[in-house]
Amino acid sequence: MENIINAQQLVFAYSGEKEAALKGVSVSVSKGEMVAVLGHNGSGKSTFAKHLNAILLPSGGVCYVGGINTADEDKLLDLRRTAGMVFQNPDNQIVATIVEEDVAFGLENLGIPPEEIRERVDSALKDVGMYKFRLHAPHQLSGGQKQRIAIAGIIAMRPQLIILDEPTAMLDPRGRAEVIETITRLNRELGMTVILITHYMDEAAACDRIIVMDDGRLLIDDTPKKVFSNVALLKRVGLDVPQATEIVYELKKCGIDLPDDIITDEECVEALASLLSKKGEVQA
C-alpha cells in the first residue's frame, strides 16, 4: 500500500517554550486507513496533526503528505487541498452565511470553474447528509450539523486525507454520533484516509488503528484491540478505556481467565456469557 503520510523523526518546539512539543515522532499511514490519535492535553497530538498540512513546520525531521514535503512553500496550496483539516469548534470554521456558500468557499479559493463548484458542493452536501439544509444559515443548525458542514467544506476540495482535531469535543451525544457516522462512511465508502484526534475511547475503538501519544512521543501504535489491552499503561498516561475493556481488566486482576482483546459491548457479553455458562456447568 502506498503511504499517504510519511513523517520521520518530527521535532517541534513552540517559541518561548523550553520543552519540545514533539520529540522525534515517526508515523506512516497508508491510503484508506482510519487512524485515531489519543493522548491527554499537551501530549503533542494536536501539534502532530498541525504538521500534516503545514500549519506548523518541523524544526527537525521531515514530513511527506501525499508525496509533498510539507516544508515546500511552493506547494502549500497543493498540500492543503490534499490534506483537509476540520477543527474542534464548528462555529469558528464556517465563513459564509449560507450553508452551500460555505461549502463552496474552499473551491472558490482554488479557482475551480463555477459549474464544477456547484456540482461538487451538491455532492459533498449529500455525502454528509446535509443537502436539504443547503440554503440554511449556519446559526440555525445544531452543533453536529455545523460540524458536518465543516466536513463537507473540506471533502468538496476532494482531499486524499482528512484530519479532524477533536471534532466531537463540543458536541452532545447525538451530534457526536452524527459526525462519527459521517466520518466512518467517508472512510468506508469513499476510501478517504482519516486521522481522528479524540478524547473519546469509543470513537478510537471504532478506528482501524490507534496512535497513543505522550509527552511529545509516540507511545503505542497498534490496532484498537492491542492498544486497549494495555489498560494500566493507558491509565498512567491519563487516558481511559471502554467500560467493556475495564470490566474484563478488573476481573482478570482477580485471577479470572478472560481474553484481553475485548473492546466492544458485544465481545464483552460473549466472553462473560461463556464464562458464566461454564460456571453453571461446573455447578451442575
Binding site: 467500560q243 467493556a244 478488573e250 459491548d265 464483552c268 457479553v269 462473560l272
Partner: peptide, 29 residues
C-alpha cells in the same frame, strides 16, 4: 444508559441470573 448496564441487560436477556442494578464498573465487578 451506562455501557456496563447495557452489557448486563444483554446478559439478563440471555437468561443469566444477573442483578439488574449494575451501573458502574465497580458494581459490575
Amino acid at each position: 444508559v451506562p455501557q456496563v448496564t447495557k452489557i448486563f441487560t444483554e446478559l439478563k436477556r440471555r437468561g443469566f441470573d444477573v442483578a439488574d442494578n449494575i451501573f458502574t464498573v465497580e458494581q459490575a465487578k
